[in-house]
């Protein structure tokens, strides 16, 4: 499989702290790739470099061969890269439907034609909300929703980008056991239905091992291991890093 995203020699320092130290990995097109590692390993920092919220000190991020480091953050969604946030970053005072429609932002035609596109956008948003079980609460404001639903709204918003690369930042955090099980199926389903590549930061090992095609392990800002789930699970360095948590 060709690499959709290539992270090469990525290094970022905040003051004296090196958050990422020469990290390299590939994300193959069509795969679900898990990005794991202990707290503070630099996983979210890595996401933030890819989506340009952070400026790395050195290194390369190539998406379909294009250097993303030349882009500003608001250009990333236009490249069909969408993300969720570790701490759920919804537009709280907007409705669920409106949250989803912000995901459509870069796909609106420019100028007055945008008005004409509103109907099509809304139809598509309702479809996505329906797939995630949110159609019934489309007109509710986002701020009162239970946590699990809020995470789904975030996912819907990201899907409205029609992403080629979907970055999920700890999708299972805060969910119940049953919800995590359902989430695994959901991620696999949307990866297939929306034909999107997924890069997922996750602590929930069972979930990662179950749905990932490939796993990258970060520890203390470095790449510790990189391979299929079984190989990573058996890697002694990984076991040590997690102190047998796997």
């Amino acid at each position: 499989m060709p690499a959709l995203l290539t992270v090469r020699n990525l290094t970022i320092r905040f003051g004296g702290i090196t958050a990422l130290n020469d990290v390299s990995f590939d994300v193959a097109e069509g795969h679900i790739t898990g990005l794991i590692g202990p707290n503070g390993a630099g996983k979210t920092t890595c996401f933030n470099c890819i989506t340009r919220l952070y400026q790395p000190t050195s290194g390369e991020v190539l998406f379909k061969g294009e250097d993303l480091l030349r882009c500003v953050p608001q250009q990333i969604a236009g490249k069909r890269i969408a993300r969720t946030f570790q701490n759920v970053a919804l537009f709280d005072h907007m409705s669920v439907l409106e949250n989803a429609l912000v995901g459509y932002h870069t796909r609106f035609p420019v100028g007055l034609a945008a008005w004409g596109a509103e109907t099509a956008a809304t139809r598509e948003a309702m479809d996505v909300l329906d797939r995630l079980g949110l159609a019934g609460i489309a007109n509710r404001p986002a701020h009162g929703l239970p946590f699990g639903l809020r995470k789904n709204v975030e996912l819907a918003r990201a899907l409205m980008v029609r992403p080629e690369l979907l970055l999920l930042d700890e999708p299972a955090a805060g969910l119940s056991h049953d919800e995590v099980t359902a989430l695994g199926d959901t991620i696999k389903r949307i990866a297939r239905d929306f034909s999107t590549t997924v890069l997922m930061v996750e602590h929930h090992m069972a979930l990662v091992m179950r749905i990932s095609d490939h796993i990258v392990v970060l520890a203390s800002g470095k790449t510790l291991a990189d391979g299929p789930p079984d190989a990573v699970r058996a890697n002694p360095a990984v076991i040590e890093a997690y102190l047998g948590a796997v």
Partner: peptide, 12 residues
């Protein structure tokens, strides 16, 4: 207004 980082991440 609600979340500038998220808005920017979606191309606003």
């Amino acid at each position: 207004r609600d979340n500038p980082i998220a808005a920017v991440s979606f191309g606003v």
